[in-house]
Amino acid sequence: MIFQGVLTKMKTELSNPVQYYLVFENDFLHMNQLLNKTLTIQFVKYQCLNCGLDKPIYRQGFDKKCFFEVPQAADWVIRPELSTAHLGQEDRDLEYEKKVQLQPHIVYLANSSNVKVGVTRKQQVPTRWIDQGAHEAIEIVEVPNRYLAGITELALKDFVGDKTNWRKMLKNDVDDENLVEWREKLKTYIPDEAIKYFIENNNETNIEFPVIQYPKKPKSLNLVKQQEYTGKLVGIKGQYLIFEDDTVFNIRSNEGLVVKIIVN
């Protein structure tokens, strides 16, 4: 079977284990069904997720020009405390910014390689946790806009991490943590503007990933450089495909590449 299309992050469905779907324009692959099968992945060309042109991808699936122009790649996306739509102030596109920033956001704790704090839109729960490869997560506050979530995350980053160690996450070198205790411990540090949105008495969500074999020394596939790779798929975690030879391929960081996938 041969499939071809532009990579965008895999769609997911929370079940036991998580179900993964790689969606192309005219087709999709249910990735769980490809476990234990040999895949060949070939680089075909670039296709910017904004303009559609065959220009080298700079970041987040966009070519360099689009990356610095589109609202989806503005600084407030990565640093939510920079959000200004609640003040009526435009960054790149006020209508888009209002639509995204002025909706319920969750500040959460997730454990993927270690306990970390993060921000996501409420509608992205639990998708965001799955994409990070977190095996457990819990909501701390639910606020009405992105700015409040951002300043809360900023305050809590002094006491807990905000980055995932992708190698540790993929090796499944993780400890179970009591996230309810962590939430209570961090409550003291939530800013005054957000403390009334603190979530009481919720439980952590546990997530199982479809992995047959974890890599001992994960090595990242650079498809543009290598052009083609063949390996047996033995797991999926976060947005990574895990292969038997310890090669891992991050779908998310390769958005905007047109690939051909051959299932042998």
Results as ranks from 00 to 15, higher is better:
Lys260Asn: 12
Pro191Lys: 14
Phe28Gly: 04
Trp76Val: 07
Leu94Ile: 11
Tyr189Cys: 05
Val259Met: 09
Phe67Ser: 02
Ile262Trp: 10
Val248Glu: 02
Tyr21Phe: 15
Gln226His: 13
Gln132Phe: 07
Ser113Gly: 08
Lys260Gln: 14
Gln123Arg: 07
Ile207Cys: 01
Tyr108His: 00
Trp166Glu: 06
Tyr46Ser: 03
Arg121Asn: 09
Arg128Asp: 01
Glu142Trp: 09
Glu69Tyr: 02
Asp131Gln: 05
Val234Met: 11
Trp76Glu: 08
Ile78Glu: 07
Ile140Tyr: 05
Lys187Ala: 09
Glu13Asn: 15
Thr230Ser: 14
Ile78Ala: 11
Ile106Val: 15
Val119Pro: 00
Lys217Asp: 11
Lys217His: 13
Cys66Trp: 04
Asn254His: 12
Val117Asp: 06
Asp27Phe: 09
Ala74His: 01
Leu179Asp: 07
Lys55Phe: 03
Val125Trp: 15
Asn202Glu: 09
Thr205Ala: 01
Tyr21Leu: 14
Met10Tyr: 09
Lys116Cys: 10
Gln42Cys: 12
Ile251Thr: 05
Ser83Glu: 06
Asp131Arg: 02
Asn178Cys: 09
Ile140Leu: 12
Ser112Asn: 02
Leu14Val: 10
Asp192Asn: 14
Lys219His: 12
Ile138Met: 01
Tyr189Asn: 11
Trp129Ser: 04
Leu170Asn: 06
Asn203Tyr: 13
Asn264Val: 05
Val248Met: 00
Leu39Gln: 13
Tyr58Gly: 05
Gln227Lys: 15
Thr127His: 10
Phe159Thr: 11
Val180Pro: 02
Ile78Trp: 00
Leu49Gly: 05
Phe24Val: 02
Trp76Phe: 14
Lys116Met: 14
Phe62Cys: 06
Asn32Val: 01
Val6Pro: 03
Phe3Ile: 05
Asn36Gly: 11
Leu221Ser: 02
Tyr21Gln: 15
Ile106Cys: 08
Arg146His: 00
Asp93Ile: 00
Trp166Ser: 09
Lys187Gln: 10
Gly133Ser: 04
Glu200Phe: 08
Pro17Ser: 04
Ser220Ala: 09
Val160Ile: 15
Gln4Gly: 05
Pro218Gly: 11
Gly133Ile: 01
Pro144Thr: 03
Asn222Phe: 06
Tyr214Gln: 10
Gly61Trp: 00
Leu102Phe: 08
Lys237Ser: 04
Asn172Arg: 08
Asp91Trp: 03
Lys232Glu: 13
Ile130Ser: 02
Gln103Phe: 00
Glu25Gln: 12
Trp182Met: 08
Lys11Trp: 10
Val44Lys: 08
Pro191Val: 15
Met31Cys: 15
Lys65Met: 08
Leu241Phe: 13
Pro17Leu: 10
His86Pro: 00
Arg92Tyr: 07
Asn201Tyr: 11
Val160Glu: 06
Gly61Asn: 03
Thr12Lys: 02
Val211Leu: 07
Ala74Ser: 06
Val141Ser: 04
Lys163Asp: 14
Glu153Leu: 13
Ala110Leu: 09
Lys98Pro: 03
Val143Gly: 03
Lys122Gln: 10
Asp176Arg: 10
Glu184Gln: 11
Gly150Phe: 04
Leu241Lys: 04
Asn26Gln: 11
Asn201Asp: 13
Ile195Gln: 13
Asn178Ile: 06
Asn206Ala: 00
Arg128Val: 04
Ser83Gly: 09
